[in-house]
C-alpha cells in the first residue's frame, strides 16, 4: 500500500511537471523559403519538420 501511494505521488508529480499550466510555453520561429498554398490542406512540403505547438489547456 505504501509503495502504491509513493508510486502514485511520483506519477502525479511527473504529470504535473510535464504539463504545468503555469509554465510559459515557447515555440522556435522557423523561416521558410517556400510558402504554403492557403487551401486548408496541410500537404505543403514547407510544413515538414516545423516544430508543433500542442497540449492545449
Amino acid at each position: 500500500m505504501k509503495f502504491y501511494l509513493t508510486f502514485l505521488l511520483v506519477l502525479s508529480m511527473s504529470l504535473a511537471f510535464a504539463q504545468d499550466p503555469a509554465k510559459q510555453k515557447e515555440l522556435q520561429a522557423v523561416r521558410t523559403i517556400k510558402t504554403p498554398k492557403i487551401d486548408g490542406v496541410l500537404d505543403d512540403a514547407c510544413w515538414i519538420n516545423v516544430p508543433i505547438a500542442t497540449d492545449f489547456f
Binding site: L27, A29, T35, P36, C46, W47, I52, A53, T54
Partner: peptide, 16 residues
C-alpha cells in the same frame, strides 16, 4: 488534440 505550426518569411506569417 490540436497541433499548430507557424512559419514566416519576408512578407507574412503562415499558420498550420
Amino acid at each position: 488534440r490540436t497541433e499548430m505550426k507557424v512559419l514566416y518569411d519576408d512578407v507574412a506569417i503562415y499558420v498550420y
